[in-house]
């Protein structure tokens, strides 16, 4: 199970276990093109990449908890270590979240690629590139279509907030924040019970 959470490519047998269906069904879906994947070169073995599997499961209403352990992945991006520590503490103790952190926009990109977070808490002012640039890049990639973004900032210029929401942020939270309402906004966005 632990493997499943980090595995990037699955066999039809693994997919059958994750989806709790027969391997034959998986093969049929693969061959019909409902489940996208590839065959191993030089053989007929079918392989399914992680994002295709996730997309298939979402399309067919199959719960993702076998694949994702039930915990929601959160990436916190902020150059202030104290803020990061606080979120790590807060979300770690909550129990419903798996947390990764980044302190620059560049690092945020790398971690996003590897960790594929469900939600990003993104500070606006970063040392290298601004949060809105990070936000725009994520939204330009259809793979991260379902990823939620909460922008955080101490700057409260209404024009800027409007601009952030324009480039694809789902929510704007002003620093300092009421922790409860932040968690509430996160669970609402992730539809976590």
């Amino acid at each position: 199970m632990t493997n499943n959470r980090t595995k990037q490519v699955f066999t039809t047998g693994e997919v059958a276990r994750i989806c709790k269906v027969s391997q034959q069904t998986v093969i049929r879906c693969f061959d019909k093109g409902q489940l996208k994947g590839f065959r191993v070169p030089g053989s007929r073995f079918r392989r399914i990449p992680r994002d295709r599997l996730v997309a298939f499961m979402r399309e067919n209403g199959i719960p993702l908890d076998q694949l994702e352990s039930g915990k929601r992945r959160v990436l916190v991006v902020d150059d202030d270590e104290q803020i990061i520590d606080m979120f790590t503490d807060l979300l770690g103790k909550d129990g419903r979240f798996e947390v990764r952190t980044a302190v620059t926009g560049y690092e945020a990109g790398i971690v996003t690629e590897q960790f594929r977070p469900d939600i990003v808490l993104l500070d606006f002012k970063l040392p290298d590139i601004n949060g809105n640039a990070v936000c725009r890049t994520i939204r330009a990639n259809p793979v991260y279509e379902h990823m939620k973004i909460i922008m955080m900032s101490g700057v409260a210029d209404p024009d800027e907030i409007e601009e952030l929401l324009q480039v694809g942020a789902d929510e704007f939270v002003r620093k300092p924040f009421d922790i409860k309402s932040v968690i509430e906004r996160m669970t609402e966005l992730l539809k976590v019970a």
Binding site: Q82, M86, G154, K175, P176
Partner: peptide, 11 residues
């Protein structure tokens, strides 16, 4: 100011 304030308030 808002970062430290956020930390103080959050903690």
């Amino acid at each position: 100011l808002n970062n430290p304030l956020a930390v103080i308030s959050g903690r």
